[in-house]
Write a protein that binds this DNA or RNA. Structure first.
Length: 542
RNA sequence: CGGGUUGUAGCGCAGCUUGGUAGCGCGCCUCGUUCGGGACGAGGAGGUCGGGAGUUCAAAUCUCCCCAACCCGACCA
């Protein structure tokens, strides 16, 4: 791997072999659930993206350019639109279900490419799309992908689990992300150690202990000179503990000043807010914008009796009474706030970010938060794209209905990187046999006729038996060859040297265990081939 | 987009404060010795000092502008 440019890497021969092996495993498993391979263009006319509305909603992530005629063009970030245009030729439920896929370059103008292959601007993705006449069919295609993805990760040797996820800009109803724990990742996942609950922090919820607020009382404004923070109000005489306060955040949602209210000790999750409101451009309001809207500065803000701006409130605050919050008057707060009575709530939404140790909604166990790499994502899209692009079929009753679509993605390069994250030690990579650039290397201690002849014989025999094998006949010292083989991570090293050759023996070293055994050369290939075959197909079904 | 750091030989870096003929390690080439865990000796090749402008007798070094990469954050199927 060599970097050409931020987020763009040149793939050298060894890396490219791994890439192709990963792609082939993905290909096999998608074919196994009925997928058919296509290849769609990666350069698209703007018109198709405008039709779906994503020309605007995708924002700066999309590379846009003009051709010589001045026509707007985009580099594909994903292919829902393009597959939908092909699928518009479908006309009958008898042609369904369909699973179509391709492995194609995606371009995404990421704000900050990082971490080698984990986040790049140009990469290969397998994206498949399912087409069904009804939601039952969509469920089936979705579940089939769920199974296929788990098989893929098992074969790649990547530990994985599925989590509830935000659909983000993709839209649709349901989505599951596949995650592998790694410090190199970029997603926080809330996971229950006791049951199988897991959710992206952008979506996950938890159970909170009940809070007794006592009987509701009158709204009362009181002076709080100098109090500007939740913590300060906690220690202020006549204040309130954080879980009895309302935290009011002033946000700009697509240019509209909006008040967002969460409990004093809770953190707003921006993605939850984005999902709930459908807003594209979200940012905290500037201090002067806030003052113009509410007449107070941060630290004294509140949503009580605010009618001119939408107020969005976290669901856990429903029915809470005797709360304390800013009064939109510098140095004054309200106490005795009944949320339902005193706030004009436009929307009740789950907004708060789950914290480590909170109770699992299923079983009550303390939740943990794990850093993860997202290695796959599957979506139920519903009829959003099929309606836009006229992907309609006649159903069994003769009615013309929009097709139920699903969309399923795996980044090839990112999975390579995730496999390395899962399989390395202080000497280098420890490739799983299934995706190793070469499954075995024959290391010649000396490059003389006798050694070369013995090595070539083993090379030919292994090759004939279907093993990916490389012969290291460089004129280099033993230590150099050993260190390189370990760094690259070939699963098997066959060492041929004068010591062994004198006894008709070779050494077999397994990268994973690091252990070496002497094996008679005569039976070497017959002994090794079944072991390699089995390791290569580990996790593979029929 | 905000904050920080860095651009000098293929790779990793020093030199910049205090301007005066561009250096070190690894790698590379040649010869010799060595040769089962990253050898040693001798000789050698290799650089628009990120780009542009300025100051100066003189700029890798000082000033200004630009570009790029990396890290943190914002953002992100």
């Amino acid at each position: 791997m060599r970097q050409l440019h931020a987020g763009h890497y040149s793939m050298l021969p060894l890396g490219w072999r791994v890439h192709q092996k990963v792609a082939n495993i993905v290909r096999q498993e998608i074919e196994a659930i009925g997928g058919q391979e296509f290849l769609l263009p990666t350069m698209h006319p703007a018109s198709i993206w405008k039709e779906s509305g994503r020309w605007d909603t995708m924002g700066e992530i999309m590379f846009r350019l003009e051709d010589r005629k001045g026509a707007e063009t985009a580099l594909g970030i994903t292919h829902e639109e393009i597959f939908a245009t092909v699928a518009s030729e479908l006309s009958s439920y008898k042609q369904l279900p369909q699973i179509w896929y391709h492995i194609q370059t995606k371009f995404r103008d990421e704000a900050r490419p990082k971490s080698g292959l984990l986040r790049v601007r140009e990469f290969h993705m397998k994206d498949s799309y399912s087409f069904d006449v009804d939601t039952a069919g969509l469920d089936k295609a979705f579940d089939a992908h769920d199974v296929a993805y788990r098989r893929i990760f098992a074969r790649l040797g990547i530990p994985s689990f599925g989590v509830e996820a935000s659909n983000g800009a993709m839209g649709g109803t349901d989505s599951v992300e596949f995650m592998t724990p790694s410090d190199a990742g970029e997603d926080d996942v809330v996971r229950c150690p006791n049951c199988d609950y897991a959710g992206n922090i952008e979506k996950a919820t938890s159970t909170l202990p009940d809070i007794d607020d006592g009987p509701a009382s009158e709204l009362e404004k009181f002076a709080t000179p100098g109090v500007r923070t939740i913590a300060a109000l906690e220690s202020f005489d006549g204040g309130a503990s954080a879980d009895h306060q309302l935290k009011s955040l002033v946000m700009m949602l697509d240019g509209t000043i909006t008040l967002v209210v969460v409990r004093g000790d809770h953190q707003l999750n921006m993605q939850k807010l984005a999902d709930a409101t459908g807003a594209i451009d979200i940012r905290p309001a500037e201090v002067d914008e806030t003052f113009a809207a509410l007449g107070a500065h941060p630290g004294s803000l509140g949503a009580v009796n605010v009618a001119d701006h939408p107020v969005i409130v976290d669901v856990v605050l429903r029915d809470r009474v005797n709360m304390t919050t800013g009064a939109n008057d510098d140095d004054f707060h309200y106490r005795g706030v009944s949320v339902d009575r005193d706030l004009e709530v436009a929307q009740w939404v789950d907004l708060r970010e789950v914290r480590e140790g909170e109770a699992c909604v299923n079983c009550g166990a303390a939740l943990e938060i794990v850093r993860c790499i997202e290695i796959g994502h599957i979506f139920k899209l519903g009829t959003k794209f099929s309606e836009t692009f006229g992907v309609n079929v006649s159903n069994a009753d003769g009615d013309v209905v929009p097709v139920e679509m699903g969309s399923y993605g795996i980044g090839i390069g990112r999975n390579m990187a995730a496999a390395v994250e899962a399989h390395h030690d202080d000497k280098g990579i420890v490739w799983p046999v299934a995706i190793a650039p070469y499954e075995a290397v024959i290391t010649l201690m000396r490059v003389d006729d006798e050694t070369l002849e013995a090595g070539t014989k083993i090379y030919d025999d292994l090759k004939r038996a279907g093993v990916d094998v490389l012969i290291d006949d460089r004129d280099a010292r033993a230590g150099v060859k050993f260190a390189d083989a370990e760094l690259i991570g070939f699963p098997y090293r066959i060492t041929l040297g004068p010591r062994g050759l004198a006894n008709g023996e070779a050494e077999v070293t397994r990268r994973q265990s690091g252990e070496t055994e002497n094996v008679p050369i005569a039976g070497l290939v017959d002994a090794l081939v079944p072991e390699i075959n089995e390791a290569r197909d580990a996790g593979r079904h029929g």
